[in-house]
Amino acid sequence: MRRRTLLAAGLTIPLAALQRLDDALAVPPQPSQPAEPTQIAQQLRAARRQFDTSDLAGLVAALPGLLASAVEAAERADTPAAWALVSAAHGLATDTLNKVGNKPSARLTADRSMLYANRSEDPVAKAASARALGMMLRIQGRPDLAAAVMSRGIDQLTATGVRTTAQADMHLRLLCARAYTHAWGGDESRALEGIAEAEQAAARIPAMAPTAMPFAVLYRANIAYALGDPRTALHAARDLRDGMYPTPERRGRLHTDLARFYWQWGKPEETTAALLTAHRHAPSEVLDRPSIRRIANELVERHPRVAGARHLARAISRPQALPTV
Results as ranks from 00 to 15, higher is better:
99 K>D: 04
90 H>W: 11
77 A>N: 08
113 S>P: 02
135 M>P: 02
129 S>H: 08
142 R>N: 15
137 L>N: 01
125 A>H: 06
79 T>Q: 04
85 L>T: 13
51 F>C: 05
137 L>R: 12
131 R>M: 09
72 E>W: 01
62 A>T: 13
80 P>A: 06
62 A>W: 12
51 F>E: 13
63 L>A: 08
108 L>K: 04
65 G>N: 14
100 V>W: 08
93 A>T: 07
125 A>Q: 03
101 G>I: 06
59 L>I: 11
69 S>E: 10
86 V>R: 02
91 G>C: 04
106 A>S: 10
87 S>A: 13
127 A>Q: 07
127 A>W: 02
50 Q>G: 02
84 A>S: 15
110 A>D: 11
80 P>T: 11
109 T>K: 00
118 N>P: 00
54 S>L: 08
87 S>G: 14
119 R>D: 09
94 T>L: 00
63 L>E: 11
141 G>Y: 13
120 S>K: 02
125 A>E: 01
97 L>Y: 09
112 R>E: 13
144 D>N: 08
143 P>A: 02
78 D>K: 01
134 G>T: 12
124 V>R: 03
136 M>A: 02
62 A>N: 12
119 R>Q: 11
142 R>G: 00
81 A>Q: 14
97 L>T: 06
88 A>L: 04
126 K>W: 12
79 T>H: 02
116 Y>I: 07
112 R>K: 05
100 V>F: 02
81 A>P: 14
80 P>E: 07
79 T>N: 08
74 A>Y: 07
122 D>I: 03
53 T>A: 03
141 G>A: 04
91 G>M: 06
77 A>Y: 14
71 V>W: 09
137 L>G: 03
101 G>L: 01
118 N>Y: 10
117 A>I: 07
128 A>M: 05
53 T>F: 03
66 L>G: 11
90 H>K: 00
112 R>C: 00
65 G>A: 02
100 V>Y: 07
103 K>W: 11
63 L>V: 07
98 N>F: 10
64 P>S: 13
89 A>W: 08
135 M>R: 04
61 A>K: 15
52 D>H: 14
67 L>R: 06
129 S>P: 03
114 M>Q: 15
146 A>R: 03
100 V>T: 12
63 L>G: 06
119 R>K: 10
94 T>G: 06
80 P>Y: 10
99 K>L: 10
145 L>D: 13
109 T>P: 00
89 A>S: 15
92 L>R: 01
64 P>Y: 14
62 A>I: 15
104 P>N: 14
120 S>T: 13
73 A>N: 10
111 D>I: 09
114 M>N: 11
100 V>M: 09
110 A>H: 08
144 D>V: 15
96 T>A: 01
72 E>I: 02
124 V>H: 04
72 E>H: 13
91 G>F: 00
69 S>Y: 06
85 L>V: 07
114 M>T: 09
99 K>H: 03
117 A>V: 07
128 A>W: 12
126 K>G: 12
104 P>K: 01
62 A>Q: 14
124 V>T: 14
91 G>H: 05
108 L>V: 15
136 M>G: 01
126 K>N: 14
92 L>Y: 10
139 I>W: 04
59 L>R: 04
92 L>W: 13
111 D>Q: 09
144 D>Y: 03
59 L>H: 06
127 A>L: 03
51 F>D: 13
100 V>Q: 09
61 A>C: 14
